[in-house]
């Protein structure tokens, strides 16, 4: 008889692992990736390749330096970080921008803080913000590549202002991303919505986060007065910029968002408030990246004050508010 294994209960295990979760996120991003390649053609392909390869190589180097098993690089988390980094970069940006953004995301934001599970900020967003500061002329928020249309011959080198500065024709076009300029993977809201719904259905992300995030932006842009010239309708605010990709794929990042239902609600509403404040009263036309990074910073505090009420305890836990 072979040796018996001694281990702690439970002796059953749910099938989901870090890998299945990460590759599901990659699958959920596929529709938006396909649309971005359709809109921005070769420029998109080269940014995706640069970012994903840079992310994977950085991951391998960091794992090696930290003495961690190299097979962790295949768990999908570095792949997703590379993919997301590419999706929030401007199309047409130089090859090194993507490499630096993805490398910074993995090496500095993720591994310097302890690797998967320990990072405070969403790596892709922090990578994007880093290159925005590092290459102000390359990553420029006022000049954007015009996407190719159904009848066009591919992405146009001509630039135009961000959709948050200049209005497009209809909400439908905004929703589908037709003729909308913006970061690589953020323009087709329909594709992002399909991916987001898949993740909600798979119970990988909590529906509360995108619903409360987008809901807060809608309600506040409806209620609050804006600076003159920036008084867009709430529908326009919801459908433009990086709100969808941020709400479905960045604010829902497990590592950098709260773990309790109440914490997630506070986090999402906080993100929404910050986006609106930045968009309506700040110096930037877009605020999704900063809103999420700022709220990421508050996550340990939120978790601490949102402990659920433990079964059978009448009074609230010290530091609990549910």
């Amino acid at each position: 008889m072979s040796k018996l294994l001694i281990k702690s209960s439970p002796h059953l295990k749910d099938e989901d692992t870090i890998s299945t979760i990460m590759w599901s996120v990659a699958l959920a991003l596929t529709p938006a990736v396909v649309m971005s390649i359709y809109f921005f053609r070769l420029s998109a392909v080269s940014i995706y390749l640069n970012c994903i390869i840079a992310a994977l190589i950085s991951e391998l180097i960091c794992l090696k330096l930290r003495g961690k098993p190299l097979h962790h690089a295949s768990d999908g988390s570095a792949f997703v970080t590379g993919l997301l980094t590419a999706m929030i970069l401007p199309p047409g940006s130089a090859y090194y921008v993507g490499i630096v953004a993805a490398g910074f995301a993995i090496a500095i934001v993720k591994h310097c803080f302890g690797g998967l599970g320990h990072n405070i900020w969403n790596p892709a967003l922090a990578g994007r913000v880093f290159v925005q500061f590092a290459y102000p002329t390359e990553v420029n928020l006022s000049e954007w590549m015009v996407p190719s249309s159904l009848f066009g011959n591919g992405a146009d080198a001509v630039t135009q202002a961000s959709p948050l500065v200049e209005q497009v024709d209809s909400y439908l076009e905004l929703f589908l991303g037709i003729g909308v300029s913006g970061s690589l993977g953020e323009t087709c809201k329909l594709a992002l919505l399909i991916g987001g719904l898949y993740l909600i259905f798979r119970k990988i992300i909590d529906w509360r986060v995108p619903v409360y995030y987008i809901g807060t932006v809608f309600v506040l842009t409806y209620l609050l007065p804006a600076k003159s010239g920036l008084d867009f309708s709430p529908y326009y605010h919801v459908l433009s910029g990086g709100l969808f990709i941020g709400a479905f794929f960045m604010a829902t990042d497990m590592v950098t968002s709260p773990v309790t239902p109440l914490g997630r609600l506070i986090f999402a509403v906080g993100c929404g408030i910050l986006v609106v404040v930045i968009r309506l009263y700040g110096g930037y036309p877009e605020g999704v990246a900063y809103s999420i990074l700022l709220m990421n910073t508050a996550v340990p505090l939120i978790d601490r004050y949102c402990k659920p009420r433990i079964y059978g305890s009448k009074t609230k836990q010290a530091g609990s508010s549910l």
């Binding site: 294994l5 281990k7 433990i310």
Partner: peptide, 29 residues
């Protein structure tokens, strides 16, 4: 119960997915 297959498996760092918080019937963390 006697099983033919059993493994301990590699333990990774907590990715803070919150599934355990959602699954705990006593609402512990």
């Amino acid at each position: 119960l006697a099983m033919r297959a059993a493994e301990i498996g590699e333990q990774r760092a907590c990715i803070r997915c919150g599934r355990c918080v959602e699954a705990c019937p006593l609402r512990l963390m």
